[in-house]
Design a protein around this nucleic acid. Structure first.
Length: 275
DNA sequence: ATCTATTCCTGGCTGC
DNA sequence: TGCAGCCAGGAATAGA
C-alpha cells in the first residue's frame, strides 16, 4: 500500500507532466471523486504546472489557480498511458481518465478497491480540505528536539501514534513497523515514557527507512506499482513487516505478530523492548 | 485525550 | 478444480 515513499515515487515519476494541457476528464466511477464528479469538467483546458506531495496526498497544480488532490489509499495507481492501450487486467479498475494535449495520452487513475479519492477545485479549496489541513509535520521537516517533545506529550502507544497522520504525516503500517524495529522500540510502549534520546533515535530510524525506501522506488507490497508499471524493490529490504512467525534477521528470535488498534503489527520481542 | 469497533472494497490466499 | 471464508488496511466516524 502506498505510504510516503511510494507516493514520493509516483510524484517524481509524474513531475514531467509539467506543461501538458488537460483535454478532457472522464469519470468512470463516481464515488472515486469527492463532491460532485461533474466538477471535474472544470479542469479541461488547464495546464499542469506542478506535481507534488503532502504526506500521502498527491497534488497537481493547474493553471488559473485550480488543482487536483489524489489519495491512493490501498490500491490506487496513477500512470500515463497511450489512449489506445487496452489492458484487460487493469482496464476494469480505471476510475478516472484525464486525456492530455491531443488526446493520444491519458493520465489514468486506477483503483481496484476504490478506497482512493480524487478532489478537484481551486488550490485554496484543496488546501482547506479537512484531511489535508489537520496533517502533522512531514518526517523530514521536523527537528529531533521538536519530534521528541511532541512524542513525549502523548499517551498513545508508539505504533498507533506513528500511524496517526495528525501526529506525523506519511507513515503507514509498513514503515511504522520498520522504524520501530530500527529504533529497538516496542510497538506497545507508551509515548510519554520514551526518553528524549530514544525519541530522537526513533525519528532518525523513521527518516532512514523512508529515505532508503524512496531511493528504492518504494515497496511493492499489496499491489503497489510505479507509474511505469514496474515494482519498487524495497519490499526485499523489509526487516520486520509481515515477518510474523519467521526468525528475526538480527537475533534469530521468532518474530511476534499482534494487533494494535486493529492493525497487524510485527516486532521482535528481543530486539524491541519497553523501556 | 485516547481508546475500540466499524465501514468502505475486492484480489488473493487458505483449507476443505 | 471449486468454493466459502477470511485477510490485507488508510482514514473517517461513532461511541465509550
Amino acid at each position: 500500500m502506498p505510504e510516503l515513499p511510494e507516493v514520493e515515487t509516483v510524484v517524481r515519476m509524474l513531475a514531467p507532466l509539467k506543461g501538458r494541457v488537460i483535454r478532457e476528464v472522464m469519470v468512470l466511477h463516481q464515488p472515486s471523486v469527492a463532491g460532485s464528479p461533474g466538477k471535474m469538467s472544470m479542469l479541461a483546458g488547464r495546464t499542469i504546472e506542478r506535481v507534488w506531495r503532502r504526506a500521502k496526498f498527491i497534488r497537481v497544480d493547474l493553471s488559473e489557480g485550480l488543482g487536483l488532490a489524489i489519495h491512493l489509499r490501498m490500491t490506487g495507481w496513477l500512470g500515463v498511458l497511450a489512449a489506445t492501450v487496452k489492458d484487460p487486467k487493469r482496464d476494469p479498475y480505471v476510475r478516472v481518465r484525464v486525456s492530455l494535449d491531443d488526446g493520444s495520452e491519458q493520465l489514468v487513475f486506477n483503483d481496484i478497491r476504490t478506497f482512493g479519492r480524487v478532489w478537484c477545485g481551486t488550490r485554496e479549496s484543496l488546501d482547506a480540505l479537512k484531511s489535508l489541513k489537520k496533517l502533522g509535520p512531514e518526517p523530514f521537516d521536523i527537528s529531533p528536539t521538536e519530534f521528541a517533545q511532541r512524542l513525549r506529550s502523548k499517551k498513545s502507544r508508539l505504533k498507533s501514534l506513528l500511524l496517526n497522520q495528525e501526529f506525523l504525516a506519511g507513515v503507514g503500517n509498513i514503515y511504522a513497523d520498520e522504524a520501530l524495529f530500527g529504533a529497538g522500540l516496542h510497538p506497545l510502549m507508551i509515548a510519554e515514557k520514551v526518553s528524549v534520546a530514544r525519541a530522537k533515535r526513533l525519528l532518525k530510524s523513521i527518516q532512514e527507512v523512508l529515505q532508503a525506501a524512496i531511493n528504492a522506488g518504494g515497496s511493492s507490497v499489496e499491489n503497489f506499482k510505479r507509474p511505469d508499471g514496474e515494482s519498487g524493490w524495497f519490499q526485499r529490504e523489509l526487516r520486520i513487516y509481515g515477518r510474523g512467525g519467521e526468525t528475526c534477521v538480527v537475533c534469530g528470535t521468532v518474530v511476534k505478530r499482534i494487533l494494535v488498534g486493529q492493525r497487524s503489527t510485527s516486532f521482535c520481542p528481543k530486539c524491541q523492548r519497553v523501556f
